[in-house]
């Protein structure tokens, strides 16, 4: 710290700094450049990882993709490479997700509405919000166990419904959280304007606040769907898997994630091929739901 030179009126007037200060400035600048470099590298690492994963998905997934994937059910082990498809798993996934979304969206939007509109100054709401945030990040495998105990054991077997409920439990906190955040963006004057006309609070929420938040609520639903459709762990014990085509909601059902979990770890090349194809399909669904959701969110923010 000890500098022999001091700032004198003379060199200040000339707009110069003492020599040691120039050294110090150079060093500070160097440190800053290194810092910029390191943060850029960190970003590059993340992007590289993304590109590598997407590349593997596309390369291995597309090479195994053919029309029979959508028209034929999952094959038994040991069949020729290229035979069999994922029809039962795709339909099963769609069914489970549709039922799960129905549950998650209805409960999530109502719960989020309660937190945002009725929860202010309410101790219980603070607790619910906190627990919802915890549930939001809770390990999904535990939710699978819970759904197993609750909906599989009593009925002596897995079913599409049990899987849908498990997925709904995973997704509801996401929808609740987004709903609350979105509704809180609406100005209090809009609420007051509705109430000032003499409309009840509930009516104001349903016909004004919800409507004004439409885009945001759809985004919340899409993000919830993105989370849900890739979830595997909750399905492992609840849907029980099914090699055949089924649309019976009370019976075991096939799904894409379950099929991946089963096929990937096998030594059967044809199964591994289908595991990659299924991964590609899931990733495509999840990522497009994500992109559309974020895009909508940005669009509505810009308005």
């Amino acid at each position: 710290m000890a500098t022999t030179e001091t700032l004198t009126a003379k060199n200040l007037a000339a707009g110069q700094l003492p020599g040691s200060a120039v050294d110090r400035y150079a060093r500070r600048k160097l440190i800053n450049y290194i810092f910029v470099g390191l943060t850029s590298i960190a970003t590059a690492v993340a992007i590289t990882a993304l590109v590598m994963i997407l590349y593997s998905l596309v390369a291995k997934g597309f090479s195994g993709l053919n029309l029979t994937v959508f028209t034929v059910d999952t094959p038994a082990g040991g069949e020729d490479l290229g035979s069999g498809g994922l029809r039962n798993a795709i339909v099963g996934s769609l069914m489970i997700c549709a039922m799960g979304m129905l549950l998650a969206v209805s409960i999530g939007i109502m719960a989020g509405t309660w937190l945002a509109e009725y929860g202010d100054g309410n101790k219980l709401a603070t607790i619910v919000r906190f627990l919802n945030d915890v549930l939001l990040s809770a390990p999904s495998i535990l939710i699978g166990l819970f759904a197993y105990e609750l909906f599989v054991v009593p009925f002596h077997g897995g079913s599409a419904i049990a899987g849908a409920i498990a997925l709904a439990i995973v997704t509801t906190p996401v929808v609740t959280r987004t709903t609350e955040d979105i509704l809180r963006l609406q100005s209090s004057q809009l609420r007051e304007a509705g109430v000032a006309l003499g409309a009840g609070k509930g009516l104001v929420i349903r016909s004004i606040i919800w409507r004004a938040s439409r885009t945001g609520l759809v985004t919340g639903g899409l993000l919830g769907f993105a989370r849900m459709s890739g979830e595997t762990a909750p399905l492992l014990f609840t849907t029980a898997g099914n090699q055949f085509f089924s649309m019976n909601v009370t019976q075991p059902i096939a799904s894409l994630p379950y099929t991946i979990a089963n096929f990937a770890l096998s030594a059967d090349d044809n199964w591994r091929r289908l595991a990659w194809v299924a991964s590609l399909l899931i990733a495509a669904a999840v990522l497009s739901a994500n992109i559309i959701g974020r895009h909508l969110a940005r669009g509505s923010q810009n308005k």
């Binding site: 004057q189 809009l190 007051e192 304007a193 109430v195 000032a196 006309l197 409309a199 016909s207 409507r211």
Partner: peptide
């Protein structure tokens, strides 16, 4: 009470619906 004592706010607060519906709502 609020039907008989109406209120207009500092910032405009049109409802997210058509002009016609804005009035019909109340």
């Amino acid at each position: 009470l609020r039907a008989r004592i109406g209120m207009v706010f500092q910032r405009p607060t049109p409802f997210p619906m058509s002009i016609y519906e804005n009035i019909a709502f109340g």
